[in-house]
Design a protein around this nucleic acid. Structure first.
Lengths: 356, 356
DNA sequence: CTGAAAGCGCTAACAG
DNA sequence: CTGTTAGCGCTTTCAG
């Protein structure tokens, strides 16, 4: 009752060799006669092939790893649900890790996955390309979701021109592999350029001129898109970044509102920043949308909870995860580049006309 | 560059036997001299022991499985983060599965974990004890979190008296193992009896008499606690259950408000039901808290987003997950029974005095 | 079409 | 203290 039947048990009970059992169970050739008998015995013994044996033999674990910064960020949870749905359909296990947005923890988790011989990995990356190079080199099939790793800081400083080019390509969703010295990794990301542009245009149409962007780690593409959407010259003070924690997000939002009372609208780069903005505004007695209009990235179930309900830039988190999983599973054939998924501006009640 | 070094490589390079390498790396005895050499070579070769080999040898996979109904339920995400934090600290992998609240999918995932020889499992169960018996029988170490599996339906129907007793014991957090014919599984759950009682008393103190309970799958204990808190006779119409989807939650809330316009307060058994209640109330032009007071289970980051901010029964989701992981990892020694964790009523703005 | 045999990388006896 | 050896359960040549 405690120990499971092995392939050997089945072979003996069916009066065949283990190889035959293996073939039958993995769809190899066998006479209908034998096949039936083996299948019957296997069912009878409630035999389940051990992934352990198979994995060792094939020198790789099936399934995939999934690394996200923080599951309590509802968007990441949606993405994870998508990955899990695809994995479940494929009968494959998913090894999950939460990095807390910390490149170091990310590295450690990659190491752990390597140790487990998990050679397929979906990640919402926190570290830069240097963090990810080892994983690629180790032969892992990785797919990035939601965002791409930043370029190593040394490059940024050394070569601002290259960085600018890179940012532009980033915006267009050009895969890193096509970028100079980048990683060759497919990815599933949202069309941030279009998403942000639509939002900014919408706010402009409402009469807003001083629009701020409130971002978090990994929102560089969105910030760049914001810059492009508002057009030069960008008021740098209106682009602020938090560091990842909810407290930091709140502080950043609060600081923004206080230092720039002239702003009339803000675009939050993610749902965590969105709630931070609402809370900070409320604390400062700024009414949404009367005093300040707000558009938040991510359509989450509780966006409507706010009154008025939040206008959002929806991105298909679940699809993104599902597609990333499909991609990483198809590592056999030609590797598609991944895709840039559409966003949608869902207008609810958190934006109003500019009141001078 | 592509293939990793094996223990054999290290042994050869260090001029020792593989057993010695194994010993050194797992803290066995070895002369300082040898130990140092082995360590040096291992580092030099960037050797990482393969979990595959070890697992097969030990006929078990390290780490643990984690099964939750739905990650986009923020409480489950918090719980998962707790589990991941503990696992990360222990360097153990976590295989995650999302059941969608469906016992059948749950069974399949258990089967998948069995196939992977993952013999430690933390679960927020959806199926009843019959669903879980196979896992236990198979020798898995399981720990339940947040809730316990329901008793099989046959028992319920056959023996209402036993069911009543069981409910009471459930309320007191008596582990299933101590209940007649129950599963012997440790668990980490919140003190629902106290949590609900505190909330009901609070509402009573505000003058509310017609208080409803809005529950979802797995909220039986909370419903029972609610019954106990309001005292007999319980108005059965004021206790309603949704089936798991957000739509169902909304429908249940909406139906409740419409069928019983006399109710003045509702206790939502989880955050999903909480937002459903807010949305349904808003749709029916019921103001919170003027027309209806609301207390929601789960303190989530966005509870304050609502205006007024939601009064909640907080339960330590992260701790719950962390503790469950500790418990399942300590499967070697004596197995503690788990614990009933405290809840806290956090009063914000969604409850007001009863206005007749 | 089928069986025997050789390992995958590792640990746990068992000798030396 | 250390090396040799025997598998863990499975897939995959390679003969038959």
């Amino acid at each position: 009752m405690d120990k499971r039947a092995t392939i050997k048990d089945v072979a003996e009970a069916a009066g065949v060799g283990v190889a035959t059992v293996s073939r039958v169970l993995s769809g190899g050739s066998a006479s209908p006669q034998t096949r039936e008998r083996v299948l019957a015995v296997a069912a009878q013994l409630d035999y389940r092939p051990s992934a352990l044996g198979r994995n060792l033999r094939q020198r790789r674990t099936g399934g995939m790893g999934l690394l996200v910064p923080d599951l309590t960020d509802t968007f990441h949870a949606q993405l994870a649900e998508g990955v899990l749905a695809c994995a479940r359909a494929a009968g494959e296990p998913v090894v999950l890790g939460s990095t807390g947005g910390d490149p170091e923890q990310e590295s450690e988790l990659i190491g752990m996955l390597l140790e487990q011989s998990v050679d397929r990995l979906i990640a919402v990356p926190s570290g830069d390309e240097d963090t990810w190079a080892p994983a690629i080199r180790a032969g892992m099939t990785v797919v990035f979701a939601d965002r791409l790793p930043a370029r190593p800081s040394s490059d940024e400083d050394d070569d601002p021109a290259a960085r600018a080019v890179n940012d532009l390509m980033l915006l267009d969703g050009v895969p890193a592999g096509a970028r100079p010295r980048g990683l060759d990794v497919p990815s599933e990301v949202a069309d941030d350029r279009a998403g942000i542009r639509t939002a900014v245009r919408y706010l402009r149409g409402l009469g807003h001129r001083r629009i701020a962007f409130l971002g978090g780690p990994g929102h560089d593409r969105r910030a760049a898109a914001f810059g492009a959407a508002v057009g030069a010259p960008v008021d740098e003070e209106l682009v602020v970044f938090a560091t990842g924690s909810r407290d930091s997000a709140y502080a950043a939002a609060s600081g923004l509102f206080q230092s720039r009372p002239d702003l009339s609208a803000v675009v939050a780069g993610g749902n965590v920043l969105g709630v931070a903005a609402v809370l900070a505004a409320r604390e400062l007695d700024l009414r949404v949308p009367r005093d300040v209009s707000l558009v938040m990235y991510d359509d989450v179930p509780w966006a409507e909870l706010c009154s008025p309900p939040l206008t959002v830039i929806a991105q298909p988190g679940r699809d993104m995860g599902y597609r990333a999983a499909e991609l990483v599973l198809r590592s056999g054939g030609r590797r598609p580049r991944g895709a840039v998924l559409p966003t949608e501006l869902i207008i609810r009640g958190s934006c109003g006309p500019h009141r001078p």
